[in-house]
Each structure stands twice: as structure tokens, then as C-alpha cells.
Amino acid sequence: MGRYVIRRLLQMIPVFFGTTLLIFLMVYVMGDPIAGLCGDRQCDPATAAQLRAEFGLDKSVWHQYLSYMGNIFTGDFGTAFNGQKVTELMATAFPITIRLTVVAIVFEIVIGISLGVVTGLRRGRPVDTGVLILTLVVIAVPTFVTGLLLQLLLGVEWGIIKPSVSSEAPLDELIVPGLVLASVSLAYVTRLTRTSIAENARADYVRTAVAKGLPRRRVVVRHLLRNSLIPVVTFIGTDVGALMGGAIVTERIFNIHGVGYQLYQGILRQNSQTVVGFVTVLVLVFLAANLIVDLLYAVLDPRIRYA
């Protein structure tokens, strides 16, 4: 187990550097970050040169990348061009997005897996067909359309929720945005669980458990579900990173000031330090989630051993 973790951590290193370099290059070609600093006017050449030297923009891209990475490992994510520390921006933005993601994941787990189990055990019945069609529709309607429609109906027409979330973003205001963020993944979790349950329901160990006279509930939860959850856990694990990155759309619709909002602002204002910093953290989250998922396999399925 220990050796496996170390091997995986070593494998993460090239991925981490590759991803951050890719984003760094993208941001670098994104345009001249100084141009946005003087408002709509053209910058005075002397001022521009001074700003360039101040932010280290006069060096080569490799030099910039290496010194940026060096700073990150000392916890210095740089300063946004408005003078605010990027770490300060993160401290306000990440808790909000993490709350939103947690709400979304809870929806995925509770609703997705329950629906998957119910439909998987009743394959071909009306409830199964109904849920399957529903998931198809949810997958087909893009998140921003779902979000806008829910905002229109629940927020504007019926007044059940506030159409835009306040800047502190308390948990109760995040329920509907969380559902919107989760919607597509929720449909995938349902379908994945359904397939997995339906496949395993005919397995020998399930028949044995039933033959032993175990109550149905115990057969389903302890035997069937535990064995069927591996692909689902993989999906949810990799989804954590995707949800945090994909929150841009949801945060834009409901005006939530989280990671997506900061990134959107950073990109619009060509604020490379903010963009690269936030993306770096998101990549780390994604990699860590993947590692945890792989370790969870061994917990869920004792047949899997990591040497």
C-alpha cells in the first residue's frame, strides 16, 4: 500500500508540471497582460516597461514558468494586478465553491445512487424506463439552460428561491445552484449505478446471500451495492475536479462569487497570475481526488490489493 501510494505520487509529478505548463503557455499566448492595466488607453511605453520588469514579464516564458513554480512551492501565488494577493482571493473564493461542490456531490450520491439502485433492480419496468428517459433529457439539456430555466421558474416566477446568491453564499441559498451543477453528473451516476446493479444482480454471491435467508435490504445494501459501487466511486471522484472547474457556468448564472467567478474575471482582465494560480490549485484537487479514488477501491473491494 505504502509503495503503491509513493509510486502514484511520483506519477503525479509529470502530470502536475505538464498541466500547469500547458495552462501557463495558454495564458502566455492569451495576450499582453499589461495592455489591460492602463484602462482603455494605450500604456505609456516607459510605464509599460517598468510594469513588465516589476512583474517579471520581460523574461522568457520558461524563466517565468520556473520562477512562478518556485514561488508556488513557498506558498506565494503572486499578486493580482490590482495589488490583491492571489492567496487572499483564493481564501474567499474556494470555501464558496467547495460548499457548492459538496452540495452537488451530496445530490449525486443520495439521488443518483438511490435512483440507480431502484431502476437497476426493476430493469425494464415503467419506473426504469421513466427514469432512463428523464436522465437522457437531463444529459441533453446543457447546464446553462437548466440553470436559466430553474432560475426563471423558481426564482422569478414562483419566488421560492432568491434568483441570485448573496456574497456570503450560505448553504441554503446554494441548494438549487448545487442541483443545477450536479444535474448532468447526477444523470450519469444514475445510469452507471443502474447498469452496474443490473449486471451484479445475477451474480452468484447475490444468489448465495438470498439463499442464506438474509433480509432483502441487507442483500441489496451490503452485498449488491458494495460490489456495484466501484465504477460509481470512480466517476464521482473524477467528477470532483470537473465540478469545481465547471462551476464557472453555474456561478455565472446565479452570481456566486466563487472560483469560477474569480477565474472568469481573471480571464476577462487578462490577469495571468490569478488564472494560473487558481487552475494550479484545481489541478491539484483533481489529482488528489483521483488518488483517493484509487485507494478507495481497496476499501470497497477487498480482492484488490496494492503491492
Binding site: 502530470v15 502536475f16 505538464g18 495558454m26 492569451m30 473524477t238 472547474g245 477565474l263 472568469y264 487552475v279
Partner: peptide, 22 residues
């Protein structure tokens, strides 16, 4: 395999914003 890992690490909408905004 490592290259695909790298590309999987980038959130798609985010990459699109960065890449296409220019």
C-alpha cells in the same frame, strides 16, 4: 498515457475560456 493524464487534468470549460478568449 501521461499526456492524456495531463489533458484530463484541465477543466474543459476553463480551458475553453483561456484558449478562446484571445
Amino acid at each position: 498515457s501521461r499526456i492524456t493524464d495531463i489533458f484530463f487534468g484541465i477543466p474543459v470549460v476553463l480551458g475553453g475560456l483561456v484558449f478562446l478568449s484571445v
